[in-house]
């Protein structure tokens, strides 16, 4: 390989990035457009941001989405961690294959089907014993837990597969009962994976449109549902402003997450090279 970077490669690299991020950057630029028309540049302005924050519907939808995302990510992390530990540490128990298949099925299930089946379940449950009464925030949250739990379980399982079993055995050997080992050793070692699992579940929930649409009821409109319905009525620049805020928020979270996990990785690498030497 030559050391100098070839112009050809640089051009292609730039072209690739423009293809990926051009539309997003353009949209972010247009959120500062003074003109009402999305296609005409009318000078710089932040008025759409003001309009956005004055719009109670948008703020309500955003708060609802954040609430659902926080609750469902937390519950999904708890359940997913348990499922991941069972898959990684309990050996070949009876029905393991079935369990592992069913835990991960939501990853490949078409969202439309997941959404529809959950809707039917909620309706049937309401008819049978009156809970959950009607559809709304509760049903959306439950639905989000069911699919995001699968992602958490996979993250936890793969992290735990890298943790030396003898760490847990050593704790047991030193007198800790299995429950104590879980608290002292397993969970602290899983903490980074649980954080990334939670973030993943949170993002998935915040982003979900299809399943939310199926399982929501009157009065419960999440942000993606609101955006989708607004866009159908025609593009308004305040949506650009909203999208820009979301992108900036997501980017910040992702950057923080990457930096943190890089640090952990770095430490682990240093550890590995030392134990090797």
């Amino acid at each position: 390989m030559r050391h100098g970077r070839s112009t050809f490669l640089t051009v292609w690299l730039v072209a690739g990035f423009v293809f990926l991020y051009g539309p997003i950057l353009l949209m972010m630029a247009y959120s500062f457009n003074a003109s009402r028309l999305a296609t005409v540049w009318g000078g710089f302005s932040t008025k759409w941001y003001g309009e956005l924050f004055a719009n109670k519907m948008v703020i309500d939808a955003a708060l609802l989405s954040l609430q659902i995302a926080a609750v469902s990510a937390t519950v999904a992390t708890a359940l997913g961690t348990m499922a991941g530990i069972a898959l990684a540490r309990f050996g070949r128990f009876r029905g393991r294959l079935l369990f592992s298949g069913m835990v991960t099925a939501p990853l490949v299930m078409p969202e439309v089907i997941t959404g529809l089946s959950l809707l039917l379940l909620f309706v049937a449950m309401e008819g049978a014993f009156g809970w959950p009464a009607g559809r709304g925030m509760m049903t959306i949250t439950i639905a989000h837990i069911t699919f995001s739990m699968a992602y958490v379980a996979v993250v936890i399982q793969s992290r735990l597969a890298q943790v030396d079993v003898s760490l847990e055995e050593a704790a047991m050997d030193l007198g800790s009962r299995p429950s104590q080992v879980l608290v002292d050793i397993t969970l602290p070692l899983l903490a980074p994976a649980m954080v990334s699992g939670w973030l993943l579940a949170f993002t998935l929930s915040l982003d979900d449109l299809v399943i939310s649409t199926f399982t929501s009821g009157p009065g419960a409109t999440t942000l993606p549902m609101l955006i989708f319905s607004k866009v159908r009525l025609g593009l308004t620049p305040d949506i650009n402003a909203l999208a820009t805020i979301i992108i900036v928020a997501v980017t910040t979270v992702v950057v923080i997450g990457t930096v943190v996990s890089n640090r952990v990785q770095h430490r682990r690498l240093a550890e590995g090279s030392r134990s090797g030497g």
Binding site: D164, S166, L167, E169, A170, A171, M172, D173, L174, G175, S176, R177, D184, I185, P188, L189, E271
Partner: peptide
């Protein structure tokens, strides 16, 4: 008898030191 009730301790081949 389970390991946590034995008057026995073990030094593991990988040392199994708790990294945290």
């Amino acid at each position: 008898t389970p390991p946590y009730e034995r008057p026995v301790n073990m030094m593991f081949q990988s040392y199994a030191l708790f990294p945290h």
